[in-house]
Design a protein around this nucleic acid. Sequence first.
DNA 1: TTTGGAAATGTAAAATACACACTTATTTAA
DNA 2: TTAAATAAGTGTGTATTTTACATTTCCAAA
Lengths: 229, 229
Amino acid sequence: MLNNYNTEDKVLLAVDCIIFGFDQEDLKILLIKRDFEPEKGKWSLIGGFLKMTETLDDAANRILHHLTGFEEIYMEQLYNFSKVDRDPAERTLSVAYYALINIEDHDEKLIEQYSAKWFSIDEAPSLIFDHNQMVQKAILRLRRRAISKPIGFELLPEKFTMRQLQKLYESILDEKLDKRNFINKVNGLDILVKLEEKDMTSSRKGSYLYQFDKEKYDRNVEDGITFKI
Amino acid sequence: MLNNYNTEDKVLLAVDCIIFGFDQEDLKILLIKRDFEPEKGKWSLIGGFLKMTETLDDAANRILHHLTGFEEIYMEQLYNFSKVDRDPAERTLSVAYYALINIEDHDEKLIEQYSAKWFSIDEAPSLIFDHNQMVQKAILRLRRRAISKPIGFELLPEKFTMRQLQKLYESILDEKLDKRNFINKVNGLDILVKLEEKDMTSSRKGSYLYQFDKEKYDRNVEDGITFKI
DNA sequence: TTTGGAAATGTAAAATACACACTTATTTAA
DNA sequence: TTAAATAAGTGTGTATTTTACATTTCCAAA
């Protein structure tokens, strides 16, 4: 084992992003129609290549910002996919990231510009390379994270109803939850602020809006109180 | 976004392995003293570079096999470390893997040959580059895995006592566990075979040896019964 | 045969998770 | 004005899981 850095192989490193959104009904992912070879015209995750001067997180942020116009997106590194022939054009490894964004205030124009489209996760088309595998892994990771960390709120507008929150979790976990048990549990966490305001769009009675209180949550964490849905 | 693979940067990709072992008392990691620059003489994880013709798993296996002589080591990809200047010699990213091996039957000669040494995780020396960070992350991952998947057995000899198993979990989780509760829980999982044989080394009475029954476990999984310690 | 030391064993209490159905508020249409 | 429709809001008992906890058994060695 010598310090022979020069004789070692160098590879292209792609970063591909699974962008999750939630439209009040379904968990969705944002896909683009590839306008270049190989696999031109097919659907794929949004991605790009790592540059010499940036970290993987930087690259993922750059790519996400480019497509969505957002900074400060919630994002987590997922896995490095390295099958030798995964990209037929050239030996390329890809580090998958998943990101959570509030689907409501994304930039329509950018989405159009890249022929991007939101798909419900169970209606998404087949993707190029190993991107389907990436999505599967992202869903599993999101599931595990969402029950133990308060990241679901990243997918919701700042103010949301209990029902919206419940539907979000139902779509992430892919199972029906009991309304009363869910609300009891969430209230027990003591991390939401109930507002005076009501959302009147979904019913005649209207339903109270809530906000996630990050400071309260952080204090809970310090006190060893854990988030668990 | 064009298919300009040629203009993209290529990087060196290292694979570094956190090798865990268990010596009946402490959780340990295997480290080597670097015999090449940069950071010659310092302790580090064992690692190597990805070759053009192999996957990351292949590379990790190759590296592990090289040092331990084993094939079929339990192994999981952990995370990609990508700070731009993490390796002062050249832009290198590293994919960390952690591995679990039965410390008893590793190859002494190979270990010596590479000036490798086992360290208890809380007595390990400071490591080069970002390797300390890798170890920290590996410990957290191992903790999460070990309570939800029966991977602890990878660290034990084929036949082990309940007490050994408990000590193993105590050292992984870094907390004392109650003997009766632990045994009740483990027995409840219905994945161990109690042997006739006893281990006589630790007491006059001797304690029964157990074996992990993978087939039983697999059947449980099919039946939706989950492992949970 | 006594002694020392680890192995083996069970139960009650507490906390958590789960199942489950009716009332309230409000708008719109009769 | 009253009735009907619709989603919101709310609580309790039961089952399950987790936790706390102490004594007896077995064997070898003295």
